[in-house]
Amino acid sequence: MQQELRVAAYAVCVRGDEILLARWVAKDGTKRWTLPGGGMDHGEEPVQAVVREVEEETGYLAEPTVLLGIDSIRRGWINRFAGPGDFQGLRIIYEVRLTGGSLRNETGGSTDLAAWHPLGTVTALPRVELVDIGLDLWRERPPVGRSRLTDPANG
């Protein structure tokens, strides 16, 4: 069985009563809102990765202020040529504050739109579960950095 590990860094950026999100475009064309962020390059520090990704996807310069937590997902997949696979995603989630730049959309990347959304409307958005996990970590600030939404003891 082929195994794949992807390590990524994401930002929770709240300003007043709004959160900054990027709209991710899946390979099948489906569009869902996500936290700005993405995969780390080999040799890159997580803090550098989240700063780079926020700028790439939103146009803003960001500074991580708090490590909110680490989330892990695992999914199986079938590849027609390679057979079964096992994917694990390790997602490092930071709270960030903006230090410059201006809102713009990414071109030629995995997202097509960046926007501020009122916190009260997030649950009505088409979104990936990472948005809910990030907001839970931001609100609850669990001591071990694990969202109650992904903790098996709560399920």
Rank of each mutant, 00 (worst) to 15 (best):
I19R: 08
R80G: 10
V122T: 14
L135C: 05
G100T: 02
R141G: 03
L130E: 11
R75I: 00
I19S: 07
L90T: 06
A9Q: 05
R32Y: 07
Y10F: 15
T58D: 05
E106L: 05
G101S: 06
G38L: 11
E4N: 11
S102N: 08
S110R: 15
V51A: 13
L149I: 07
R6D: 04
I93Y: 01
N79E: 08
F81G: 02
L149M: 14
R91N: 13
Q2W: 10
A49R: 13
M1F: 09
G100A: 07
I70Q: 15
V7K: 10
E57F: 07
E4F: 07
L137W: 09
L113H: 14
A82P: 00
L98V: 12
T30L: 14
F87L: 14
F81T: 06
G29A: 05
L135A: 01
P118L: 08
L149R: 15
R75E: 13
I19V: 15
A153P: 00
G76C: 00
E45W: 08
N154L: 10
D17Y: 07
G37Y: 11
R15L: 10
Y94I: 01
G38K: 13
E53N: 14
V144W: 14
W138P: 06
T58R: 04
R75L: 05
K31S: 11
V122W: 13
E129L: 12
I93F: 02
V7G: 00
T58N: 06
D71R: 14
V25W: 07
V25E: 12
L90V: 11
Q88C: 08
E57L: 05
A11W: 06
L113F: 10
G69K: 13
D41M: 07
E53M: 12
K31L: 01
L90N: 09
G134I: 02
I73F: 12
E129G: 14
L125D: 09
L67V: 00
E140K: 00
G145C: 06
A8G: 14
L61T: 03
T150A: 04
Y60K: 05
G69L: 09
V66K: 15
E56L: 14
A62M: 04
V12D: 05
G69I: 08
L149C: 12
F81L: 06
E63D: 03
D28A: 08
T123Y: 13
V128M: 13
D28V: 01
L125V: 05
K31R: 15
R23I: 03
P143K: 13
F81E: 11
E45D: 15
A114W: 07
G29N: 12
R146S: 06
C13D: 02
S102V: 00
R104Y: 04
E45S: 14
P118Q: 09
L61R: 14
P152A: 05
